[in-house]
Simulated assay, not measured.
Amino acid sequence: MMPRPANRFVAADLSAHCSRDRELERALAPLVGDELQSGRLALTRQGATLIAVCADRALATEIRFQQRELLKTLAAAGIEAPAEVRIRLDSTPRAPQPEPVAVQREIPESARSLLMQTARSVSDPELAEALKRLAAVPPQRS
């Protein structure tokens, strides 16, 4: 007997639900963006209710005081404003977004000489200067 595919058990409108949540987060980012990015707050919508899942009581209190502003911001963003806000506590509403890792990239000498050669043959002076600046970037030290 073959196991059934997992997507058979997932609601058909899951992607629509996730895109609505992202739309809420984008609209409310000016008010609660730091909490969303740190993973201390998650927002979702159930019918006419905006649900804010908070990591701690302090954040829940802050969201409670900002309820009207949150609803006004959603209405101004063109999103059908929910009728009420419900606040829930959970120690980890969602995983925080990973910090971007800075990748150190080196420009090999052969590429530097090719950039300089191309800069001399290009007729556009702005492009030629940009290529020269790129070729002159000093190698990064670890």
Rank of each mutant, 00 (worst) to 15 (best):
A55C: 08
S121W: 01
A83K: 07
R120D: 10
E35P: 08
S142L: 11
G33I: 06
L50G: 06
G47I: 01
Q46Y: 03
P3K: 08
R86N: 11
R68H: 14
T92D: 08
S121Q: 13
E129M: 02
A75E: 14
R120G: 00
R40Q: 14
A83C: 02
L134R: 03
A6K: 10
T73Q: 15
R112K: 11
R40M: 08
A119D: 03
S113W: 00
R8I: 05
M116W: 03
A42W: 10
V101A: 11
P139E: 05
E109K: 09
A75W: 06
L127N: 01
P3D: 11
K72W: 05
R64F: 01
R68S: 14
T61H: 14
L89S: 09
Q104E: 09
R40G: 07
Q140W: 07
E69W: 03
V137N: 07
R120A: 11
L134V: 04
A6I: 15
V10H: 12
R88S: 05
R40V: 00
A135H: 03
S19I: 07
A130G: 02
E109P: 06
L74W: 08
V103R: 14
Q104T: 08
Q117H: 11
V32N: 13
P138K: 15
E129R: 07
A75R: 15
P98V: 00
A83F: 03
D13W: 09
A12D: 13
R20N: 14
S123E: 10
P93A: 03
T118S: 08
L31V: 04
D56N: 15
A60T: 06
A111L: 11
V10E: 12
D124P: 03
K72D: 13
Q140S: 12
A58D: 12
Q104D: 06
P138H: 09
E106W: 06
R68N: 13
G39Q: 05
E109W: 00
E109A: 10
R20W: 05
G39T: 04
A81R: 15
A58N: 13
E25G: 10
A111S: 09
P3N: 12
Q117L: 06
S91L: 04
E106C: 03
M2S: 14
A111V: 06
A95G: 00
R57P: 07
S19G: 04
V137Q: 13
I51V: 15
Q104A: 05
P108C: 01
A135C: 04
R26Q: 14
L50Y: 06
P30C: 11
P96I: 00
T44Y: 10
V10C: 12
K132Q: 14
L114W: 02
S110D: 10
A81I: 07
C18V: 14
M116K: 13
Q117M: 02
G47V: 01
E23G: 12
A48R: 15
F65Q: 07
E25D: 12
